[in-house]
Simulated scan of single mutants.
Amino acid sequence: MPLPFEPLTLVHVVFSSRIAGGERHCIDLANAQAALGHRVHVIGSANSAVAAALGSGVRFHGLSLPLLRGWRVAALARRLGADVCHGHLGPACKAVAHVRRSARIGTLHVGYKAHHHGRLDGLVCVNRAQRESLPDGGALASVIYNWAPERDAAEAACQTELRVELGLSPEQLLVGSVGRLHSSKGMDLLIAGFKAHAPADAVLAILGEGPDEALLKGMAGGDPRVRLLGYRSDVDQCLKAFDLFVSPSREEAFPLAILEAMRAGRPVLSTATQGPQEMLAGQPARLVPVGDAVMLGHAIAEELERLRPLPPRQRAVSYATAAYDRANAVARTLAFYRDVLLKQATHARPIENEDEPYAAWRA
């Protein structure tokens, strides 16, 4: 297979209907690649919020039903003349595996799963531990860190006053977290630990939506100190109001919310999941054991006691974030595509018939 000439035709695949960390990464990567002159497409679910977030240089293709998504992605990628088909999150990577005439790439936003990623040609790992744990003899792999995408112009112009919105006095300390309301994100641990150990005048604000919303509201039990604020488009502005940012997750490969908190200069307290252990190594941040609400609560209380005497300006923290540079990550991703394409050109895999697995259904 000869190497394609520049610019490349790049097809990203992401099936989520709403935008969280992995989806935001896909959107910003696609926009950045289009700005560099590549022909960029995104395949996703029809009516997905992803479509509206893409720049004018990226074309979105919505699939109305999840039926036979792998075959439909393969057929569309072939029609578009894709040089590279890049999946984001497990279901999309599983669909990308059906593509036959393109380099098949997957980003491990969560982690490696053989049934999602085992048939891909290239894997983008978002931390070193992922790379080291991959099975031998598999796809070409590279560690490329995510970055914190810049928010759009409307949000950048927004002047949210979260402390005023929450009715806080100047003396009250605000603990905040951002993430999907799902068991993996550990918001239940955060609420339990905060209620049991945080100072009586402290307030907890959780930004995000998800399937555990009713459960978490039940745990809050009407406590006025615990505020579930739902989805917010002004996350960067809200982060600036937090005195302490907490990531209570049970599992994290590369939490963009932590990187955004670092960008905002917020003190960070996180559970020692895979991604934060690497991201926060040598940084002025604190790690606690995973899944332990008591330890998390004690750490919150200790951090707030440390911060309380400091004037608000002195609570800001400076982090080393050069490793999470957007331009460098985009360039490395494109270079990785070329490495996979070169490997394909020198070790050509057979071109299978994309229609074959579905021949009986179509008949």
Rank of each mutant, 00 (worst) to 15 (best):
L140Q: 10
V175G: 09
L280E: 10
I258S: 00
H25K: 04
L334S: 11
P255E: 09
P66F: 09
R263N: 03
R286Y: 05
F336P: 06
H116Q: 09
A241P: 13
A20S: 15
S17P: 03
L287F: 04
Q172F: 02
V42Y: 01
L207E: 14
A157N: 03
Q314D: 15
G62M: 03
N353E: 14
A272F: 06
E252V: 00
F194M: 08
R308N: 13
A293I: 05
F5I: 01
M187H: 15
G297Y: 02
A53N: 07
E23I: 08
H86C: 03
R79H: 13
A52Q: 04
H298C: 08
A257R: 02
G81M: 06
A53W: 06
E23S: 14
L29E: 14
N328E: 13
P267W: 02
E161A: 14
A293P: 06
S56F: 01
H98L: 02
G176F: 02
D152L: 02
L259C: 08
E213G: 09
F245Q: 11
E252Y: 04
E354L: 12
D212W: 00
L63M: 15
D325W: 03
P2K: 06
F254E: 13
E150T: 10
L8C: 10
H88D: 12
R119K: 10
V143M: 09
D152S: 03
L3I: 10
V178Q: 02
G44Y: 01
A322S: 12
S48H: 12
A97H: 11
E356D: 10
E302D: 15
H197S: 11
D339H: 08
H347K: 08
D136W: 03
H98D: 15
P4S: 08
A153Q: 05
G87Y: 06
C26A: 05
Q237M: 15
R227M: 02
A35P: 09
H88I: 04
E251S: 05
E132V: 09
A192D: 04
R128Y: 02
A200D: 02
V110E: 09
R227I: 03
D292V: 00
G193L: 05
S133D: 15
A214F: 05
A261Q: 01
D292W: 01
A95R: 05
A97I: 04
A360V: 11
S133R: 15
L65N: 12
P357I: 04
L123E: 15
G218I: 00
R349Y: 02
D136V: 07
L216E: 06
Q237T: 07
Q130M: 00
L36M: 15
Q344L: 14
V96H: 13
L239T: 07
S102G: 10
A323E: 14
A148H: 09
A103H: 02
L189Y: 02
E23W: 09
V84E: 15
N47V: 00
V58Y: 00
L216D: 08
E213R: 12
A53Q: 09
A141S: 15
V14K: 09
V13E: 14
A95N: 08
V11I: 01
P248T: 01
R308L: 08
R39V: 13
V164H: 09
S233N: 14
A46S: 11
G275T: 04
Y324N: 08
G222W: 00
A301L: 05
Y231M: 10
E302F: 04
P312V: 06
R225F: 07
K240C: 04
P276K: 00
Q159Y: 05
